[in-house]
Amino acid sequence: MEHPIIDAREKPCPIPFVLAKKQIEEHTEDFTVLVDNEPAYQNLKKLAAASGYSAQIQQTEQGYSVVFSSDKAVHDFHDLQKPPAKSDEPWVLLLKSDVIGQGEFELGRNLMRMYLYTVRTGNDYPREIIVINKGILLATEDIHTIESLKMLEDAGVVVRVCGTCLDYYHKTEALKVGTVSNMYEIAHSLHEHKKVLSW
C-alpha cells in the first residue's frame, strides 16, 4: 500500500498540520510528515491522537519524522467543518426569502449567510439553486450571499433568479449572480428533481 511522505520542513505553521489533516480526511491509512521544529511535531502528535491514529516520532538530522498509522478502520475524527454527506441524487435548493425563519431580521439574514457558506464549503452541491420572491435579494443586495452564490455558480451549480420578482422589487439592474429565469423553467426544475430543499 502506498505510504505518502509529506515534506513539510521549512513550511510555516500551520501548513504541516493542514497537510496532515488532508491525508486524514482522505482516509490515508499510513503516512509520514517531515517537520523541522518541535511545535510542529507536537501539533501533529495531538492531531493523531484526536483522529484515531498512532504517531511514531523519530528525530532525524534535519528535524523530525512523524509516522501516522491508522488504528481503526473508521476514524472518529472531529472535523471542524464536516461537510454534509454526499447525496446520491441531484437536488435543488429553493430560496424563497432572504432570511431563514421568522423573527428578527438580522438573525435570519445571518442564518442564511451561514447556511450558504456551509453549502459552498461542503462537498454536496445542489444541481440548481432557485431564488424567488424576496430570495432574489440574495443575488442582488447582500455581498455575503452573492459571494457564496458566485462560488457555487463557478463550481457548476445553476443559479436561477426569478425574473418576475426582480422586476417587482425593481432589482433587475442589480443582479450580481445567476441567470434570469421564468416560472416555466422554475416549475420544470422543481418537477424534474425528486429532492428539493427549501428555506
Partner: peptide, 16 residues
C-alpha cells in the same frame, strides 16, 4: 483563533 483556508475550506490550528 488562527486558521487557514485551503481549497475553499477552513482549517483551525489547535491551541492558537
Amino acid at each position: 483563533h488562527r486558521g487557514t483556508i485551503v481549497d475553499n475550506r477552513l482549517y483551525l490550528e489547535e491551541n492558537t
